[in-house]
Write a protein that binds this DNA or RNA. Structure first.
Lengths: 203, 203
DNA sequence: TTCCGATATGAGAATATTCTCACATTGTAT
DNA sequence: ATACAATGTGAGAATATTCTCATATCGGAA
């Protein structure tokens, strides 16, 4: 956690430091990143840095947490309009929030993606959908089951995990090309959908 | 590429150095890894290191390539016995070779997994299935299509990509627990399978 | 204005890392 | 036995990085 002194700084300076860190951490991994560079970009003296943060890890976690909070907020959003598409579509829509963030702040997304697989990282904790959020997604699927849109024997958790993995991988593969992301994701969803929806036999 | 001198070394020494590097690179990322540590573990003097390798990157690529060659060989293997299960099962079997390697050499797999998402890494090149290998997998699926086991409108490439992504993610999640890997993977495959196999209407 | 705690500042300490180089040793062909 | 190329060796150069600390500056209360 940043020191009190940091929070007392005026916004302009705070943001200058934050953004200098974002720039560095989006180019390099934690161990490659250089405080020297951050301090230079932010145009603050060395001593000041340690007035604001305890160490390198401190500013790193600060950056990560700030970004993850933004993503969390974006993922809360529900499907627009008052249509209610099937569970899979709704879930995929939630996940596409990262695509949105990537358009406005590609550096943020780069940082998250770079650290998503680091077992010791703060990112991982955030990546494991929070309990309430997870429960919300599950109930969307259970509703569809009730409506007879999804086979009763399907393991909801598995489906959610699958979609989640695919979205993450696809995103880190397609990078800034959100068109490619959506196109491929839809192909994947179509395959999954036809696998989970009730088979209409003897029509 | 290691220098000639390295290849001329007697096997015992070569392996000692290789394994010292494996130990270090399986614990740390490339930039975190310390030559100091490798040299110490391998019990060779500093000067010798530079007689064998050009620099840190050189020994890293050597380790990565050696491991990836092992994996490539494992992935070539066909399904045992003379049964011929459906395309999905055959493909999943090929992919499970990593599970096998993880039982015998968990450090190797750790290195691969740690670097699989590094855009500049040699691993990535290997991870993109080689052309022939990819073609072989496609034809397994096309065969099933001909047999009427897979719907004609299914995009084979998408299915392959999906399974590939899921296997990789699942593997890095379950780590050394190959039982968990297989259990989850089968759930995923079952969902995909029911999506791609011909729907039998009006039976 | 005077005083004092909070903050700013940058030189450099402490440490770590990669890599070089001058010299020693070894092995092999003559 | 001698010569000579190939290889071994480790001290330390060159560099980079994080972090400290003594001192300077600021800004508001008395």
């Amino acid at each position: 956690m940043p020191r009190e002194t940091f929070y007392k700084l005026k916004d302009e300076k705070k943001q200058r430091i934050f953004y200098a860190a974002v720039q560095e951490f989006s180019k390099c991994s934690f161990s490659e990143a250089s405080l020297n560079q951050i301090v230079k970009t932010a145009k603050i003296p060395w001593g000041s840095f340690y007035q604001y943060f305890e160490n390198k890890e401190d500013i790193f976690s600060y950056v990560i947490e700030t970004i993850m909070k933004k993503i969390e907020i974006l993922e809360q959003q529900k499907f627009p309009e008052n249509v209610e598409p099937d569970a899979l579509t709704q879930f995929a829509y939630k996940l596409s929030s990262t695509v949105e963030l990537n358009n406005s702040n590609p550096e943020y997304v780069r940082i998250v993606m770079m650290n998503a697989n680091d077992s010791s990282s703060v990112v991982k904790r955030y990546f494991e959908l929070s309990k309430e959020h997870k429960q919300a997604v599950i109930s969307i699927f259970e509703k569809d089951k009730h409506l007879g849109l999804i086979r009763k024997d399907i393991d909801t958790a598995s489906v959610i995990e699958m979609v989640y993995i695919l979205s993450k991988a696809l995103f880190s593969e397609t990078g800034s090309d959100s068109g490619a992301y959506l196109e491929k994701m839809n192909k994947f969803l179509s395959i999954i959908r036809n696998g989970i929806k009730t088979e209409v036999l003897y029509e």
